[in-house]
Amino acid sequence: MVPTRDAVLTQLRKGVVEYCVLACLRSGPAYGLELAERLGATSTLLTSEGTLYPLLSRLRQQGWVTTTQVASPVGPPRRYYELTAEGRAALETFTATWARFTEDVRTTLEPR
């Protein structure tokens, strides 16, 4: 059976979305909806907000992000997520590994 484009994207997302979230936090704290909008700006990284919040919870449990509740000018307080030193180190490791990995994949996929 030939996988669909969506099935392939689902598999690719599993290993990289958490690092894309960390990359979004590299420039400073952000709240969940803000992260969803950044990741949702591309058609392949985030398909629904429903997958983002469990991921943010896992990142917090791993010690890669911290959270702070901040009063919102409209509506309930917002939970802001911020990259920790450990999260920054994890992102740096992923970024270095990703560069080599994508180069190897590109080279392998090229017709000979």
Rank of each mutant, 00 (worst) to 15 (best):
E86N: 11
S72C: 02
V65Y: 01
W64C: 08
R5W: 12
L22E: 02
A96M: 14
L35T: 02
Y80L: 09
R60K: 10
L59A: 11
G15C: 09
P54Y: 09
D6V: 09
L12E: 04
T107I: 07
A96Y: 09
E92M: 15
T107M: 14
M1C: 11
L55T: 09
T42G: 11
G15R: 04
A85M: 08
C24H: 07
R79F: 03
W64F: 14
G75D: 01
T47D: 12
T42K: 04
G40N: 05
R106M: 09
V21P: 02
R112L: 14
P29L: 12
G63S: 04
G15N: 06
V105N: 03
T68C: 03
T95L: 14
Y53F: 14
A7D: 10
A89S: 11
E18S: 13
L45I: 13
E92V: 15
C20Y: 11
G40Y: 06
P3F: 15
R13I: 03
Q11K: 05
T95H: 11
T10G: 11
R13M: 09
T66D: 06
V17L: 15
M1R: 03
A36G: 12
V70L: 08
L55H: 12
T66A: 10
G15Y: 08
L22T: 04
V105P: 01
G40C: 12
F94T: 05
L109A: 08
S48F: 09
L39R: 03
S48E: 10
G87N: 08
P111W: 14
G75N: 02
Y80P: 01
A85S: 13
Q69F: 05
L39N: 01
A30F: 08
G40K: 01
R38T: 04
A99H: 10
L12K: 04
R79L: 02
E37A: 07
Q69S: 03
V74K: 08
E37G: 07
